[in-house]
């Protein structure tokens, strides 16, 4: 095929995809950036929109509530992704051993992943229920607590309880990818190390971990990108409460838009969130390239 018709054809093939993505994501995003420099509000009537320069940003970056929400989001992200990483690798190590019933465990591990995010949030909300929740009942019956606790009622504890629910749903993905990476380790390598007298920890530390670190890095950054936008589980479990104890960045922007109807200042928050996400996304691509060079 000639060079000209080939490259023209390439664009014909790409056109629908580019059109859809431009209209639904790229152009709206640019609109958000533009709005962030204005005092626009969400109203039903015609409004005069004024260009106010960096005012929104100055406001956003000095708004302690927003900065706290950012900090909370990072806490949520780091802790849940960290736990998913540790738990995922531990589970993969377990599933990589030979034992009776392993197939069953390998199959059911996918179930938390399959549970819709909202159902997960609802289920855990019921489990944490202060009056009739399963967690209270279980801990009481086992003698760990003396009286029922309001797990999501304490601003300092609520976020951690949400993290637990998030980790339960998301560790399978990490575990499967860790397991897939471990299964590519040549058996002879580990056997040779064992014969050389390397103990289990030594084998994990000097063979398994370096082998799986590339894919793990990539999947954990991807999880970081997802965790950073956390919204659904917060919306259902706590609505950002109590006393803003679980109000994350996405939720904060959501409220600025749809509760306070300030689209200008909301947009500036959104752009800040986008900037942080962009850094994470670039880290993800760097991770992929690193992983491929290593492979």
């Amino acid at each position: 095929m000639s060079a000209i018709s080939r490259s023209r054809e390439k664009w014909v093939l790409l056109f629908p995809a580019i059109l859809v993505l431009s209209l639904i994501t790229v152009l709206p995003f640019l609109q958000t950036v533009w709005t962030s420099f204005t005092d626009a509000e969400i109203t039903a009537r015609e409004q005069q929109v004024n260009w106010i320069g960096l005012e929104n940003y100055i406001w956003a970056l000095t708004d302690p509530d927003f900065l706290e929400a950012l900090g909370r989001t990072m806490y949520f992200t780091v802790v849940s992704v960290g736990l998913e990483g540790v738990l995922g690798i531990a589970v993969a190590l377990l599933l990589n051993q030979k034992f009776r019933g392993r197939w069953f465990l390998r199959v059911i591990i996918i179930l938390p992943w399959a549970v819709p995010t909202i159902v997960n949030a609802v289920a855990w909300r019921l489990i944490y229920h202060p009056d009739y929740g399963a967690l209270n009942s279980l801990l009481l019956q086992l003698g760990f607590i003396d009286s029922y606790t309001s797990w999501l009622g304490d601003p300092d504890r609520a976020l951690n309880m949400v993290i637990l629910a998030d980790v339960w749903k998301n560790f399978p993905l990490v575990a499967y990818i860790a397991l897939a990476a471990m299964q590519t380790i040549p058996g002879d390598l580990l056997k040779a190390a064992a014969i050389e007298g390397a103990g289990a920890w030594k084998r994990f530390h000097s063979i398994t971990l370096p082998w799986i670190i590339g894919p793990m890095l990539v999947v954990l950054i991807l999880r970081t990108i997802e965790a950073f936008r956390v919204f659904d589980i917060i919306y259902v479990m706590t609505r950002g409460g109590p006393s803003d104890g679980t109000k994350t960045a996405s939720f904060y922007v959501y409220q600025e838009y749809f509760s306070y109807l300030r689209s200008g200042s909301g947009a500036s928050y959104a752009v800040v969130v986008a900037g942080i996400s962009a850094v994470l996304i670039l880290a993800y691509y760097a991770g992929i390239r690193r992983d491929q060079r290593g492979a």
Partner: peptide
Amino acid sequence: FLATIMMPPITYVLPL
């Protein structure tokens, strides 16, 4: 393309 789905939807949902 992929970056568009990694961006939090909150960053472009309002114009939409």
